[in-house]
Simulated assay, not measured.
Amino acid sequence: MKTITIGDITVPAIGLGTWHMGDHAETRDAEISAIRAGVEAGARVIDTAEMYGSGNSESLVGEAIKGLDRTKLFIIDKVLPSNASLKQLPKSLDASLAKVGTDYFDLYLYHWRGGVPLSETVEALRNAQEEGKIRQWGVSNFDVSDMEELLKLPGGKGVAANEDLYNLGSRGTEFDLQPWQEKREIPFIAYTPVAQGDRFGKNLTKNKVIQAIAGNHKATPYQILLAWVIRNGNVLAIPQSGDPVHARENVEAANIELSKEELFMIDSEFPAPTSKQPLDIL
């Protein structure tokens, strides 16, 4: 199973995303079962945020992890830009910790840039780290220029990861951002790694090459898309699923090793970027 190291902790390279989960009572039991199935299949990372359903996702995660060994989980949460100040971040963090039912987050991310000076947000994150409420801190939806600015700030080099949109239909970060982070040993977290099915009109799962490769591995097209995202060893993928079977399949995709020939076939269908692209954000 492919792994990735964030700070000094090594985790499987496919975790569990929870965006759009926890909002509907009729799907809650299945979503809790999906998180548990993913963990049972080997996932350690669970990714949530205070923005997701205004806390509904955090509460769902809290219910799903009850009774599980917290030390074996790696929980990621995120603070909204409007709450990323010295005054407000501690309050948001405490509220999120309470919803998830944990004393600390393994990784706490600044969800995207807002009006609070970046230097102030970094100071607030470092304070939370010193208090032991977060093990590590990072950022999300940052491009190269944002990361360069961050690393010039006092304490900025303490950033543990950057989470951005990345999938076979959205490869822009491969041109500059991912190489930049890899050179500095800053892990890249990929959200929406299977493009939310075929939401973006790329028809990824219906592509004949993807389907053929899936057949070669006795896998699903979704599993091939995930195996592709984590192929290079510096990316953590966090696909979301409210279905226990699908969640387990997602995690098991970390066991798939794509051949050079298969990677060439994929590149031929979905070419890598040859120039700087605007950062895709959802």
Rank of each mutant, 00 (worst) to 15 (best):
S57T: 08
P239K: 05
E185L: 09
R44D: 04
L236K: 08
A272I: 01
I256S: 00
A219V: 05
W228S: 00
E31Y: 14
W112N: 05
K183S: 09
Q240V: 15
P81F: 03
L204T: 05
D29N: 10
Y104T: 15
F142A: 13
K152V: 10
L68D: 03
L118T: 14
S170V: 12
Y110S: 12
K218Y: 06
A41M: 14
A95T: 07
R28W: 12
T121K: 03
K91N: 10
L109Y: 01
A84P: 02
E58D: 08
R44T: 04
G7L: 12
G42L: 11
E149H: 12
N255Y: 14
Q136K: 11
E26H: 13
D103I: 04
I75G: 13
M1W: 07
G62W: 10
E149F: 04
P193G: 01
L125H: 07
I281Q: 07
V251D: 03
N162T: 07
T27L: 04
L226A: 03
K66N: 11
E50H: 15
E131N: 04
I266V: 10
G38Q: 07
I210K: 03
D106K: 05
A254I: 11
T102C: 04
I224G: 09
A237D: 01
P154H: 06
V116W: 02
V235G: 11
N203M: 13
S170H: 12
F270S: 00
G67N: 01
L165Y: 06
M147L: 14
T192I: 11
L97S: 06
K99P: 04
K157Q: 14
G215D: 10
I238S: 06
V11H: 08
K208D: 14
I189C: 08
L150P: 08
G169L: 05
G156E: 03
K276W: 08
G132L: 14
G197W: 06
A272D: 14
G15P: 06
D8F: 11
I14G: 04
E31T: 06
E174F: 00
I76Y: 00
L109S: 09
K183Q: 12
W180S: 09
V39R: 03
S170M: 15
R44Y: 01
N207E: 01
F264E: 14
I4M: 09
P90T: 06
